[in-house]
Amino acid sequence: MNIKFVDVDDADLVALVAELDVFFRAGWGETADRYKQYHVLSGMACAVVAYIDGKPAGCGCWRAYDAVTAEIKRMYVRPAYRRQGVACAVMEAVERHAAKSGCHRAVLETGADMPEALAFYKKNGYRVVPNYGDFIGDEICVCMEKPISDGTMR
C-alpha cells in the first residue's frame, strides 16, 4: 500500500469523494444534501489517497476546526479494499500530518446509524463526545475526539 499526500483537486481524490457522496445519497436521500456544506474539499488542510497496486483504494482529509484541533473529513475506502488496513493507514497519515501542523486533538462526526464507522473510530482511539459546532442537537450525528499530540511540536 502506498499513501500519497495530494492536492484537494487531485483526480483520484475527487473520484473517491464522489463515490462517498453517492453512498450517502443512496443511504440517506435528501438528508445527505444538508451535510455537503461541511465536506467541501477546498477547505481541507491535508488530503491523502491510499493506493493498492497503483489503484486508488481510499482517502481521508483534515481541516482546521480551531487553532489546535483537526477535524477529520472524507474518510472513505472502496468496498473492494475494505478490511485490508486501508482506513487505518489513511487515518494514521492524516492524524500525523495534523499533529505535525500543531494540532493536539482530532475531532470528527459520523452517522449515528453507521455502526461500522463508529466501531472503526473507537478501535482507533476515538471516544464519543457531546456534539460540537453545527452538529449540536443533531440526533443523526455522533461526534468523537482523540488526542493526537502531547502539545509539543514534532
Rank of each mutant, 00 (worst) to 15 (best):
54 G>E: 08
118 L>T: 06
47 A>T: 00
75 M>W: 04
136 I>E: 15
66 D>H: 05
53 D>G: 13
122 K>T: 15
117 A>I: 09
18 A>H: 13
86 V>Q: 11
111 G>T: 09
2 N>V: 10
132 Y>R: 09
46 C>Q: 05
36 K>M: 13
58 G>T: 08
48 V>K: 04
5 F>L: 01
151 G>D: 03
45 A>N: 04
81 Y>L: 04
106 A>R: 03
51 Y>S: 02
128 V>C: 10
89 A>M: 12
18 A>T: 11
121 Y>G: 08
154 R>S: 02
10 D>G: 03
16 L>G: 06
67 A>R: 06
17 V>A: 00
116 E>R: 03
79 P>D: 07
116 E>L: 12
149 S>V: 08
49 V>F: 09
98 A>Y: 03
63 R>P: 01
123 K>G: 12
12 D>M: 05
97 H>S: 11
111 G>A: 14
152 T>R: 14
56 P>Q: 12
5 F>R: 03
50 A>M: 05
9 D>V: 02
101 S>L: 00
19 E>L: 15
110 T>F: 09
5 F>N: 04
151 G>I: 05
89 A>I: 03
72 I>G: 02
83 R>L: 08
109 E>A: 02
122 K>V: 12
31 T>V: 15
118 L>C: 10
50 A>C: 12
97 H>V: 07
115 P>S: 13
130 P>Y: 08
85 G>L: 09
141 C>E: 00
58 G>D: 08
4 K>I: 11
73 K>S: 02
114 M>N: 15
42 S>H: 09
114 M>R: 04
100 K>V: 01
133 G>N: 10
63 R>L: 05
126 Y>S: 01
76 Y>N: 03
39 H>Q: 10
8 V>K: 10
126 Y>R: 05
88 C>P: 05
38 Y>K: 06
23 F>H: 10
51 Y>E: 09
88 C>K: 13
55 K>C: 04
57 A>N: 12
80 A>R: 11
129 V>L: 11
106 A>Q: 06
102 G>P: 03
35 Y>D: 13
43 G>L: 04
82 R>L: 07
38 Y>G: 01
137 G>F: 10
79 P>V: 04
154 R>A: 00
50 A>L: 03
140 I>V: 14
64 A>R: 09
37 Q>E: 12
99 A>R: 05
121 Y>M: 00
76 Y>A: 01
74 R>K: 11
31 T>Q: 14
59 C>E: 11
98 A>D: 02
8 V>G: 04
110 T>L: 10
146 K>L: 01
141 C>Y: 06
62 W>Q: 05
98 A>I: 02
70 A>S: 10
42 S>K: 12
80 A>W: 05
62 W>H: 04
134 D>M: 12
2 N>Q: 14
86 V>F: 14
50 A>D: 00
92 E>C: 05
43 G>T: 09
17 V>G: 01
49 V>S: 09
38 Y>F: 15
139 E>Y: 06
131 N>L: 13
1 M>H: 07
44 M>K: 02
144 M>F: 11
152 T>E: 13
75 M>V: 15
148 I>F: 07
126 Y>F: 15
50 A>F: 02
